[in-house]
C-alpha cells in the first residue's frame, strides 16, 4: 500500500453495531501539521460509517487549521482506507455469525 505517513485507527472497540465510531488519526511527519498543532500529532474524532464521507472530514480538518490544503487528499484517502477496512471486517463478522 502507498505510504502516506498518515495513520488512522480505531479509538474504541468496534462492536459491529454502532454506525458512529471514534477514530484516531496521527501523522508520522509533524511538518504536515500546521502552526501550533505541530507539537501535537493525534486527532480524535467520530465518524458515521453510513452517512459521512472521508473527504469531507479531511476538508473539515483543513478548515480547522490542522493541515495544509495540499494534504487534504492524503488525509481523506487515509480515512477512506480505514473506513473501508472497518466495513469489510464488519461484513466478514456478519457472514461468520450467519
Amino acid at each position: 500500500a502507498e505510504d502516506t505517513g498518515v495513520r488512522v485507527e480505531l479509538a474504541e472497540d468496534d462492536d459491529g453495531k454502532k454506525t458512529s465510531i471514534a477514530l484516531k488519526l496521527w501523522v508520522e511527519d509533524h511538518k504536515k501539521l500546521k502552526g501550533k498543532y505541530k507539537e501535537s500529532g493525534a486527532i480524535e474524532f467520530t465518524f458515521d460509517l453510513e452517512k459521512e464521507v472521508p473527504e469531507v472530514v479531511a476538508q473539515e480538518m483543513v478548515e480547522s487549521g490542522f493541515f495544509h490544503e495540499s494534504d487534504a487528499k492524503t488525509v481523506g484517502k487515509s480515512i477512506k482506507d480505514r473506513v473501508a477496512l472497518i466495513k469489510w471486517r464488519r461484513g466478514r463478522m456478519a457472514s461468520v455469525a450467519v
Binding site: W26, V27, A42, E44, E60
Partner: peptide, 27 residues
C-alpha cells in the same frame, strides 16, 4: 496533558493530543 478540543463550524469535535512515542517510528 496537551489535549485540546477544536470544534469545526460544521459541529464536528476534534480532540487533539500528542502521539505516543512508540507510534512515531512505527512502520
Amino acid at each position: 496533558s496537551a489535549t485540546a478540543q477544536v470544534v469545526h463550524s460544521a459541529g464536528r469535535r476534534f480532540i487533539v493530543s500528542p502521539v505516543p512515542e512508540d507510534r512515531l517510528k512505527e512502520q
